[in-house]
């Protein structure tokens, strides 16, 4: 009799355990993108460009804001990347995603000029701006800035990091992906 009751309870236990595991993993999963979403951005000259233009190269995507202090520190690390890797190997693209907060091409240009005039370094890679709806920010920098992505030559996301990242850590990932070819 007792055994029969226990057997009858097995489906209830099963359902409860399924619920338990759904609950367990629902908090752990994130809607992570694994492939480059080809969202357009506005270059400093006003032209609409696409991330897909960089396919065939390893792309280091830097999502930033002009008035974000950690982003300025991140720039110093990206300068090291531009100095140590040829643009044929690694393309760097910095996109200002704080357009909805009032940042614009003029501010971004002043920022680049300030690095040249005050720090004595040229940010000689491609810069662009998100749209006013924050389309790029929503997909790539929903937590905050700076956020870095490394895409392989086919557009797969190889590495991503939210927050400031040292050059040494970026270089390890770039070397890894360049070795893979």
């Amino acid at each position: 009799m007792m055994m029969k009751n226990i057997v009858k309870c097995v489906p209830v236990f099963f359902i409860c355990f399924v619920l338990l595991f759904i609950g367990w993993f629902s908090g752990c999963t994130e809607n992570k993108i694994t492939y480059m979403e080809d969202i357009p951005f506005t270059a400093l000259d006003g032209q609409i460009r696409h991330l897909s233009e960089f396919s065939g190269k390893v792309l280091l995507l830097d999502l930033m804001g002009v008035n974000c202090q950690p982003c300025a520190l991140q720039m110093m690390q990206l300068i090291k990347v531009s100095e140590n890797y040829s643009s044929d190997q690694v393309a760097i693209l910095s996109i200002d995603v704080w357009v909805a907060s009032g940042e614009n091409a003029e501010l971004l240009q002043k920022y680049i000029t300030a690095f040249h005039d005050q720090v004595g370094v040229d940010l000689n890679w491609t810069f662009g701006l998100d749209d006013v709806n924050g389309s790029i920010e929503k997909v790539y920098a929903s937590t905050g800035v700076p956020t870095l992505y490394i895409f392989d030559k086919k557009g797969n996301i190889y590495y991503s990091h939210v927050g400031y990242e040292e050059y040494s850590s970026i270089a390890i990932k770039l070397d890894e992906i360049l070795k893979k070819g």
């Binding site: 008035n67 982003c71 704080w98 905050g144």
Partner: peptide, 19 residues
Amino acid sequence: VFVEECSNKTGICFSDTQN
């Protein structure tokens, strides 16, 4: 007014800017 919060510990400025 736009209010942006940042953490120098983790080197991040959070994206949920308040307008």
